[in-house]
Design a protein around this nucleic acid. Structure first.
Length: 899
RNA sequence: GGUCGUAUAGCUCAGUUGGUUAGAGCGUACGGUUCACAUCCGUAAGGCCUCUGGUUCAAAUCCAGAUACGACCACCA
């Protein structure tokens, strides 16, 4: 065991430590069980990593996710549970394809897909995904994540593809997947559909046009999109609207609308129409608006598609418009209406523009033939044998919606923080059928084949010639929805991983993908396996900059995790993301905060360094398996007690997902109590090797899940490379035995602290040279014995020459004093006492105390309080009163002795 | 429009089921060459706990309302 360097330099250790962990095999629970590092009988703890998109690099949000998950995982592993954390990455279909297209276009291709063809194009995407994957894995390891790499998965690999095909086929057979011609969100840039929740909205100013279809049309309508009016088939009004009621049911024919097609407009009544907005009547364009589409269904209207999948006007829009872009068509319609004198009003209004969440291009709602998952269709629920869902019967008729609602409502799945349950239910209430087909190339190909009019749906391609597979791919969330079980061996239901680790224990992810992902996993898993995917959902917030802004390249406020690891170490980076981070809330992060935790890591390093040096100098050997040592002094008893308390709080906090609180408790113990008090006392009292050794072992274990690198480095420096802290047992506590020399308890140590702090404070107040050693006289009353036993501690920490402790002693001349915990302490200053200053200091204290006593008096004289408050509270207040009064008396007598 | 969240020291936040003279870190001021650590140590200053009502013996904490900021959902043509 060699002496440690003075400062902790993370870069000198981190990579080697990670390699050492990997080589040990202990990231893999099977190895832990084999080598007896885990209780084979214990309940499992499993997390599957939310797979980062292979679109680039990790950001601070990922770093926070890794820090939180690794904390839980390392804690559980030390607890002896069979712990697995499954790594993986997500192919992120549209996102990745869009990114690669952008790169290819920067390389000079105008239309990459067309120019390269499916095969070549996918080659490029795969190459990009691979590189991105490698970067991400590297970063993940840098954070110290104890992931079981032997189980790594990719949402688009063979195993996952088989899972996807299997589930698709199952759902199709159950009638939950259907193909239909329906209105969808279409991104003309991505040339694909989007799910409802993949549409974002951007507020913008736009023109609202009020016009009539023709001179003799009785109703004016308002629109922000005149070009879609070429496909109108109805006008909807509120059935209660007296202005228009009489027209409901009538059909008007308009010739050559805006120089374009002939229209047949039926007036319909619909409760949804707001009589107050615009003219109170709206033109219904079933092919290009979700709401209108629904009205068309109810009223059996014709659906005329006037915009095609490239965002160009179709033949149905009339010869004059065919082939024009949307914007151009709009101008032309407006012009035509004006020319014909049909335009009545133009006004600027604010409205929301729908845009694609991946490429920000305007969304065109249009009708198209797509694959959907029916969320309202009844089917027979298939219950899991091993992990049945409470409250559901095998064979019971359910819908996907009902399943999703049930497991959360019945608390089979707990969401942390629970307020998100409300959001979750609200989302499900509004849920429409999920459009799962995408017209992009990068993703899971839909396992459907066509031959003429025949359709074949299967896990594998059908036998025989001339079957054509559907060219579309699946929504990326289809495969991520299977993630908790597709990573554990599905579709092999006998897989031991699936049996051992599913349902997973915790799903830790960002609240921003509660709908995208968490809800989909619940849907897919309850359907496929008849069990829940996870027991608890822990939702973290966004990591923002110190001003609370989102980190973005354009703002230039991005803090890159790798830079921070390089500069301050992975442990400091992790801690900065754990402390001050509460579930469901965004957190602000600054480089200063990370630097602060770098300081702490160094502090822990030096605490260890000191303890190691001390133990060695006492010719003792460090022992990693030490039992709770005997307390010899008051300080020993106090620190062991504090350690026990801290460990129990931390354990409690970790069990209840209060990670920030756990970290703060530990930091306070380590820095304030251990380093600032106990170690200083240990220097005075000496011969502490057992207590020091024991405390160090314990705090290294407690800190390990938070700061794996520095704790592991220290552990191995002290106990050798064969001893790996990561698989040591989490501390549990027996009562510390107390040696005969120790008297008093935590409160008594508090008195000691107070005396010392007060002396220091007066020293500072009187600007007494810190090197000057003082003489002190104490009138100790009942506390004499305690203080007698600790004179050396007081002398050392308060820098005293002499201390005289009596039961009762008068204030010496030319001294200043204070009262604390019933004890009077006088510092002899000789001729330098400034009586005026002393008077005013004591007077201030007396006056403050007076106010305090008054408020207590008021309380205690209040009959209502004495009668109604619990006896113990009243007693407590009385105790305070006595203490305060006795203190007041002593202060007054001190004042008097000042003449 | 609907739902939800937040408001405590200059800044970032704790404050567990109502009951300490409301806490921590950073920052600030003052002082320190203590042999583990200046990535350190000591001391101090700094708070109508957003506002207004209510419940209660007792409110930073519970309830109602207001204000400000933020998020999500829906979407109006």
């Amino acid at each position: 065991m060699k002496e440690l360097p003075k400062a902790y330099e993370p870069n000198n250790y981190e990579d080697n430590i990670y390699k050492h962990w990997e080589e040990s095999g202990f990231f893999n629970p099977d190895k832990c069980v084999e080598k007896g590092k885990t209780d084979a009988e214990a309940k499992h703890f499993s997390i599957v990593l939310p797979p980062p998109n292979v679109t680039g690099t990790l950001h601070m949000g990922h770093a926070a996710m890794l820090a939180i998950e690794d904390l839980m995982v390392r804690y559980s592993r030390m607890k002896g549970k069979k712990t697995v954390w499954v790594p993986g990455t997500d192919h992120a279909a549209i996102a990745t394809q869009t990114k690669v297209e952008k790169i290819l276009m920067e390389e000079g291709l105008d239309n990459p897909r067309e120019e390269l063809g499916r095969e070549k194009f996918l080659e490029r995407v795969n190459k990009f995904a691979q590189e991105s994957h490698d970067t991400i894995i590297h970063q993940t390891k840098k954070m110290g994540s104890s992931l079981d790499w032997s189980r790594e998965a990719f949402t688009l690999d063979e195993q996952r593809n088989l899972a996807v095909r299997t589930v698709f086929k199952k759902m199709y057979d159950d009638g939950l997947i259907y193909r239909g011609h329906r209105i969808v969100n279409w991104c003309p840039r991505c040339h694909s559909t989007l799910a409802d929740d993949e549409v974002e909205y951007k507020e913008q100013q736009t023109k609202l046009y009020t016009f009539k279809y023709s001179k003799d049309f009785p109703i004016s309508i308002a629109t922000t999109r005149p070009e879609t009016k070429l496909g109108d088939t109805a006008v909807a009004v509120n059935p209660k609207d007296s202005r228009y009621k009489k027209y409901i049911g009538e059909v008007f024919e308009i010739k050559n609308f805006a120089g374009g097609p002939d229209l047949k407009i039926k007036v319909i009544g619909d409760e949804e129409v707001d009589s107050e907005f615009g003219t109170g009547a709206l033109g219904v364009t079933p092919a290009h608006s979700h709401v209108d589409y629904e009205m068309a269904g109810k009223n059996d209207l014709e659906i005329i598609q006037v915009i095609d999948e490239d965002g160009k006007m179709t033949a149905k829009a009339g010869e004059a418009y065919q082939g024009l872009g949307v914007e151009e068509a709009r101008r032309k319609v407006v012009e035509a209406l004006k020319k014909e004198g049909l335009m009545e009003k133009e006004e600027e209004i604010a409205n929301n523009l729908s845009i694609c969440y991946r490429c920000s291009h305007t969304i065109e709602p249009l009708t198209s033939r797509q694959w959907f998952i029916d969320v309202n269709k009844e089917f027979a629920f298939k219950q899991s044998k091993d992990n049945p869902i409470e409250g559901l019967k095998d064979g019971e008729s359910v819908t996907l919606k009902k399943l999703m609602q049930h497991v959360v409502r019945a608390k089979e799945i707990k969401i942390v923080p629970d307020r998100f349950e409300k959001t979750y239910f609200h989302w499900i209430d509004n849920l429409r059928d999920w459009c799962i087909s995408r017209q992009i190339w990068y993703g899971h190909r839909i396992p459907v084949w066509y031959k003429g009019d025949e359709t074949y749906v299967g896990v594998d391609a059908p036998e025989g010639e001339s079957w054509q597979q559907d060219p579309d791919t699946l929504d990326t969330w289809f495969s991520s929805g299977l993630w908790t079980f597709s990573t554990l061996g599905y579709p092999n239901l006998d897989s031991s991983d699936l049996k051992t680790y599913h349902p997973t224990t915790v799903m830790e992810t960002g609240y921003d993908i509660l709908f995208f992902w968490v809800a989909r996993m619940i849907l897919m898993t309850t359907y496929t396996l008849g069990e829940i995917p996870f027991e608890t959902v822990y939702l973290h917030g966004l990591v923002r900059d110190e001003q609370g802004r989102k980190m973005s390249k354009s703002l230039g406020n991005v803090i890159d995790p790798l830079d921070m690891i390089e500069k301050y170490g992975a442990d400091a980076t992790r801690l900065s993301l754990l402390v001050g981070n509460t579930p469901g809330n965004d957190m602000k992060l600054s480089e200063e905060k990370i630097a602060g935790f770098r300081n702490f890591a160094n502090k822990l390093w030096n605490i260890s360094r000191y303890i190691q040096l001390t133990v060695t100098s006492e010719k003792k050997t460090m022992n990693k398996d030490l039992k709770v040592p005997e307390a010899e002094t008051l300080a020993d008893k106090w620190i062991l007690n504090e350690l026990k308390k801290t460990a129990s709080f931390v354990t409690n906090d970790l069990e209840s997902f209060r990670f920030s609180s756990a970290g703060e408790q530990l930091r306070d113990f380590t820095w304030s109590e251990l380093a600032d008090w106990y170690l200083e006392i240990a220097k005075i009292e000496g011969d502490k090797s057992k207590v020091l050794n024991y405390i160090l072992n314990t705090i290294l274990k407690l800190w390990h899940p938070f700061m794996p690198f520095v704790t592991e480095t220290l552990w191995q420096q002290i106990y050798g490379k064969d001893n790996i802290l990561m698989v040591e047992s989490w501390p549990t506590f027996a009562e510390a035995t107390v040696g005969k020399a120790a008297v008093g308890g935590s409160e008594d140590f508090g008195l000691l602290k107070n005396i010392i702090t007060n002396i220091r404070s007066l020293r500072a107040d009187y600007k007494i040279d810190p090197a000057k050693k003082l003489d002190v006289v104490v009138s100790a009353g009942d506390e004499k014995e305690i203080l007698d036993k600790n004179t050396e501690v007081i002398k050392g920490l308060a820098r005293l020459e002499n201390i005289e402790i009596e039961v009762k002693v008068d204030k010496p001349d030319e001294s200043i004093g204070f009262v604390v915990g019933g004890v009077e302490v006088y510092i002899k200053l000789g001729g330098v006492v400034d009586f005026e200053k002393e008077k005013s200091r004591l007077n201030n204290e007396v006056s403050d105390l007076g106010k305090y006593i008054n408020s207590l008096e008021k309380k205690l004289n209040n009959e209502n309080f004495v009668d109604n408050a619990p006896a113990e509270v009243v007693e407590k207040e009385k105790g305070k009163m006595e203490e305060a009064k006795s203190k007041l008396e002593k202060l007054n007598s001190q004042l008097q002795s000042l003449k």
